[in-house]
Design a binder for these strands. Sequence first.
DNA 1: CTCAACGATGTTACCGGTAACATTGGCGAG
DNA 2: CTCGCCAATGTTACCGGTAACATCGTTGAG
Lengths: 341, 341
Amino acid sequence: MSGKRKGLGRATVHDVAKLAGVSSITVSRYFKQPDVVSEALRLRIAEAVQTLDYLPNQAAGGLASTRGRIVAMVIPNISGPIFANTIQSFSDVLNRHGYQLLLASSYFSVEKEEDAVRAFLGWSPAALVLTSQYHSAGTERLIAKAGIPIVETWDYAPERQPLQVGFSHLEVGRQAVEYLHGKGHRRIAFVQNSLVGDLSALDRRDGYMARMTEQGLEPWVFVPTEADPFEAGRQAINSLLQRKQPAEAVIFANDNLAAGGMLAGLRAGMRFPQDGAIFGFGNYAFSELLLPSLTTIRPPAREIGEVAALRILQALGEVEIEGEIPHLNLLDCELIQRESA
Amino acid sequence: MSGKRKGLGRATVHDVAKLAGVSSITVSRYFKQPDVVSEALRLRIAEAVQTLDYLPNQAAGGLASTRGRIVAMVIPNISGPIFANTIQSFSDVLNRHGYQLLLASSYFSVEKEEDAVRAFLGWSPAALVLTSQYHSAGTERLIAKAGIPIVETWDYAPERQPLQVGFSHLEVGRQAVEYLHGKGHRRIAFVQNSLVGDLSALDRRDGYMARMTEQGLEPWVFVPTEADPFEAGRQAINSLLQRKQPAEAVIFANDNLAAGGMLAGLRAGMRFPQDGAIFGFGNYAFSELLLPSLTTIRPPAREIGEVAALRILQALGEVEIEGEIPHLNLLDCELIQRESA
DNA sequence: CTCAACGATGTTACCGGTAACATTGGCGAG
DNA sequence: CTCGCCAATGTTACCGGTAACATCGTTGAG
């Protein structure tokens, strides 16, 4: 019947147009700018759409208009305890406005990130979201000439070009010292994660070191050799608390390490915070379930996703905004005081 | 220079073709079937691609070939403690084969699921993955005539049409009873979650009830009124263990409930498993960090993602397979014995 | 030596929408 | 009554690829 090349077998604008007795562009307008189509035609088209179960082909629309309704996001990992919230809220806000999320994981590898960005760009996404400010040179080149809104989340690097939506890891480190110092502790140690790649964690360490120095205290950084976070935590507790001059408080690079360390201590008969204050980062789901519950800092994970989505929608003109779109979005972390410190 | 309509400004096949002195279809073949292009042209094209930073436009390719390289997935929620692993492994396997993942959350609502499916179909995905076997009538209609591979994960419903990749929730319920019964417990209670929508959890409850009855024991189901899982757990522990004839063992619908219950008990001075065995489901990340650590059943979350992706790739002819593609894929759960039961 | 078969490459049209411009009819101002 | 403007709708071509078929030069069997 039709040409030699068969499509998907689904109804097209042309089918709808024919059935409704209008031209295809009118059907297109019915979806994109309903207000310019007269009431009478709107009704006829609506009926035809209903009858044919018509669904607009997004690939075709995106190709023709050169404005695809896809937003791409590279995240270190989906299943980690923190980033999931960012993805969730980001995706929800986008979906609500008819955009779809394309997702890939970098596992903290800048090479994997670059691969993902390259693959994404083939889809002509409307915008691109990256995690952290640390990328490969290739990624930098790609995003520089992508010509779409770019958002960097999680970190906060005011000097960089892409939109920033995140928080200051440096400040987190300082805040932890501040809190523990206020509690009277002086020998405050920091346990780094040995996981290569999570460069933001090093910023927290640097904040810790800076604040310690300012207070006239000597920084004391422990770097575990174990890769498994729970093992690494155990290692740290053993080393820091089982010595002549034990640490009075231990700041861990994240809640996993903190939980591992605390658990090892508890099983060895220690008690917290009596035998040492334990301080985490991340406010993972389990942190309030531990006994003692874990004092930690909650990063604005959900908020990051929401704000990032909002800024993108604004940049795309989908959401009204008066004035400039803020280039810098510094969100607040929340120190959650519980029992362990 | 060119027509009145400007594209994305990026290099196209035609640009590459002109630079390499070949026709555009040859460039297309260079990417799709490199072996039919002669070595000489391959080199010339490779150079042109390099020079122009050419990236194939996936939307155009998908439109022309009617085979898009997108796979869509609807999941109850991204940030939950279980599904993230499925998404992660699913996405990784797909990415490795050049497919991209389109993601949306249903929050256990069949209406939201239907909306997501409708939105997805506009992208002509190569395949569609749903969670659980429970859908709206609209969703059933949509997937019936979608004409692409459909996979249902998480549940296992052999009688249904879509490919099944999951495990038997009924069996999980039975398995828990089996284990506790073997430990000598007779008064075994089940704590349901009050979260409307997670219908699979009810299958676990039904398995529990069936096995109890088979053993000549009386099922004892507690339905919390609290929505918050930790609060609900507390409520359950209070009701089940603080009575004249307390339960000897409590099976919780998931680890969140179990952790909430156990924590409430511990804070009230109880000890586990002495004052009651605690049994969860899900093997959430924190379960081994609790004190006592939580006995639970690990669902094959990661495996589900991997197998689902593999079956899809086979159905699409991307991965070799001899014989039929198995319609049923029943994966094993793992009972993880720890300290709480 | 002839011709069919085959490998390598090109031509044309089409996938399903939409931008840009054209057309039509109704209405109010002059 | 004529003209100009505007709102509603249509025509045409194009977005960037690829399916289908055509073409051309080689090669090997008969």
